[in-house]
């Protein structure tokens, strides 16, 4: 073997790393706290699946929170969990879709999640329509004032992700334009029908 050329061969192709890491003394001097968690058996997440500290729970099974309405739940659960969120109960058409998705499909089925995403969009449309009859109608996007006050252009200069930021107005405004177009066509059709 030609020993003279081996110095050029990267570590991956030989047994040992060519460049050893800096010594622990050097690292300790340079990095505050270097190595204080060096022992892998003395780290907070170790040992996995064992926890020896009191969690604060003073029950074997928690008391059950009152269920004010039939709470939707994953069919992979044995029952509604003893504690749950009550933030936004399902309502309207989106609520019907959500209830069906929970009742019919397990978490393992893509249909479950796609139905929930569809329900999210229906929910948004339902609330948008309702907002138009209120004093505070929805707008396509919020927080845009910061484009002017927080350097929208300056902040993006030279950034590669600015390419897909250009898509944002389409993603945000697209559904609004489509909905407005559909409404216009519908109204025209209605008007023609009455003539």
């Amino acid at each position: 073997m030609n020993q003279a050329g081996r110095g050029d061969i990267p570590s991956a192709y030989v047994r040992d790393k060519r460049t050893p890491p800096p010594s622990s003394d050097e690292l300790r001097a340079r990095i505050p706290g270097w190595g204080v968690d060096l022992n892998p058996t003395d780290r907070p997440a170790y040992p996995k699946l064992q926890h020896r500290t009191d969690t604060g729970a003073h029950w074997d099974f928690p008391e059950r929170q009152p269920e004010e309405w039939p709470r939707e739940r994953s069919v992979e659960h044995a029952f509604v969990t003893p504690v749950f969120g009550t933030a936004q109960p399902p309502r309207g058409l989106s609520g019907v879709i959500r209830r069906y998705s929970y009742a019919r499909f397990s978490e393992g089925r893509l249909a479950h999640w796609l139905l929930l995403v569809a329900a999210d969009r229906v929910d948004a449309a339902e609330h948008r329509l309702r907002s138009f009859a209120s004093t505070r109608p929805d707008v396509p996007a919020t927080g845009l004032r910061s484009e002017f006050t927080r350097g929208g252009l300056r902040s993006r200069r030279g950034r590669s992700d600015a390419r897909h930021h250009l898509v944002d107005p389409l993603v945000v405004a697209g559904p609004w334009v489509a909905a407005a177009g559909a409404a216009l066509v519908g109204l025209r059709t209605l008007a023609r029908g009455r003539r």
């Binding site: 926890h51 729970a57 504690v83 978490e107």
Partner: peptide, 22 residues
């Protein structure tokens, strides 16, 4: 919850008693 099978083993982020949805 601090008391289910998962919490008892330190998997607090995987608690089984607080999320009926999943």
């Amino acid at each position: 919850c601090g008391s289910c099978w998962f919490c008892a083993r330190g998997l607090f982020s995987n608690c089984h008693n607080v999320n009926p949805n999943a």
